[in-house]
Design a protein around this nucleic acid. Sequence first.
DNA 1: TCAGGTATTTTGTGATCACAAAATGACACG
DNA 2: CGTGTCATTTTGTGATCACAAAATACCTGA
Lengths: 238, 238
Amino acid sequence: MAVRRSALQSGPSKGGDTAPTSTRGAAREQVDRAVRSGLLTGRFIPGKAVTLRGLAAELGVSPMPVREVLQRLAAENALEVKPNGRVQVPDMTPARYQEVLKARLLLEPELATLALPHLTSKDAKRLKAVDDDIDQCILSGDAESYMRLNHTFHFHIYRASGSEVLLPLIDSLWLQFAPFMRTVYGRVGTVSLDDRHKEAIRAIELQNEDALRSAIAADINDGMGLLGKELLAVQGKT
Amino acid sequence: MAVRRSALQSGPSKGGDTAPTSTRGAAREQVDRAVRSGLLTGRFIPGKAVTLRGLAAELGVSPMPVREVLQRLAAENALEVKPNGRVQVPDMTPARYQEVLKARLLLEPELATLALPHLTSKDAKRLKAVDDDIDQCILSGDAESYMRLNHTFHFHIYRASGSEVLLPLIDSLWLQFAPFMRTVYGRVGTVSLDDRHKEAIRAIELQNEDALRSAIAADINDGMGLLGKELLAVQGKT
DNA sequence: TCAGGTATTTTGTGATCACAAAATGACACG
DNA sequence: CGTGTCATTTTGTGATCACAAAATACCTGA
């Protein structure tokens, strides 16, 4: 069987992958990684149907592991199974958008607070490096790298909490709004993007709980507030 | 093939099932309903492995739809796939418990508040009926019915919000703590159970936002606070 | 040129098969 | 009687097949 190469296969391998990629569930993990990464960086477009055999051929595996991964992601509301069985990236609606925003504001500042005691100056240094790259992506207009790095920034903080419950919930939220954000960046560009990452880093250095909570909340509000207006504009003209 | 009957098949069909149970994805939906119901009512014990072929035979279907459902539930953290591929109900830990409690307190009062404008006196009447049944279950010690009705009570409120984002998150949380709660009820019984359902109903009748929020939060704290101590006791002696 | 209907292809679903890893059990040896 | 080893069984995984529904393409007729 000819294994076709595609953009999905050359996914950026996250730094600290702990998975040994053993023979057990290797195919499924490969597919899972590819699709998740694709969703978070916006390589899947909302409304675009994703076919089982298509993805399978693209990744050089049988449709079987793809089916399982798609079911998983559908369970996380990252994908939507339509009544006829077709799977697609859900379209964003104003109501959904407001709910995601609310959920993020409820959960993410809280988890950041839980993570704070586990964050060292080494983490702050790492975050600063990531944030520098982010700034560069904003200037150069590299939306895909921006999204990946922004995800890295936030989840480096959240992951430090060692959370097993809140973190997966937030993971689900990001998978839901990321594909939509990508379409907005394609519309308005990245130059108008602003974040509160530096405030967050400073709060971590000072181990200031309230400051970190505020920085994360403000970062979410800034990022999604801007885009909320854009969404309504899109809704009006579509 | 002999279709063996089991406790799983006679799952209590929830009142307002909108699914037409057509031929499309019928098997998967049947399995999903059975396993979800089983988790929420505590018919699956934490730590107990659930085998693919076993469940398939029990439900009279091939292992295929079972695989997909198990993957879905694993994605919602309702089940745990161990490194060797075995699937089991996750064990509860003190850390997990604290996180679930925190997440519930963050999300559920908020969603109840969102739902309040959509809740009518008809809903209050329905909730009152459910709550009466709950009281009876507590007195009679019917833990399984209690858990099912308590879920019905809460989600009747939450579902009225029309939420597409917060509701699935809360769904995931309930699937995570329900099996553990069942084991605790088996240990301490149901007589000591207390809830704030009547306060919540009254808040709905009065359309009092703050009162409803407080009632839900108090209900969660009451229910899980008691059990938290029990968990620690179990941890100590195991 | 365009609408309507049919035929072809594509798609998801469920079942079965082959295989390797893991769990389980039996059994011989100390 | 306990313990280590080996054979058997069970389990999850991935692939392939058969089938029905849906989507798409095509073509005919006005």
